[in-house]
Amino acid sequence: MSHSIFYLLSFVTLLFALLVVFAKNPIHSALYMVMTFFSITCHYILLNAQFLAIVNFIVYMGAIMVLILFAMMFLNLGKETEVQKPIYLKFAAVIAAGLLMLTIFAAIKKTDGGEISGLPINDIGLVKNLGKTLFKDFLLPFEIISILLLSAMVGSVLLAKREIN
């Protein structure tokens, strides 16, 4: 039961991820990305990671994608304004993408397609257990990441701030 749901969800996720790339219209692309995030949220629910699922839902679908759409609506992207990249850049992009594909294929070939299993401890995804683990076993990394995020936030505010006079 859970295996077939997993395969269906993975198919949907990959389908929408591909549509993000193939869609002609940037706004459609962004909407497909919303759907991709939604199917990733469903993956988290399948793993019984409720907190991660809902946070992924709020942060990525509710905030980040709204901001991206918001910015895109201002840009008025159309065929006329599309910038054509120089030919050497296109070649470089093709080679880089080919190398990435090679790496991914190599990585996939190494892994064995064994049993798909859930999380090692099945209730770790619930808010209470996750909070306890974060604040007991992983306190230092957690705090360091918080400081990193805070400094990134301060940095972005500084960059976005307009110079007076």
């Binding site: 907190f51 809902i54 946070v55 839902f57 709020i58 509710g62």
Partner: peptide, 8 residues
């Protein structure tokens, strides 16, 4: 959080 997510 569910309500918050749906509202957003």
């Amino acid at each position: 959080l569910y309500i918050f997510g749906v509202v957003s």
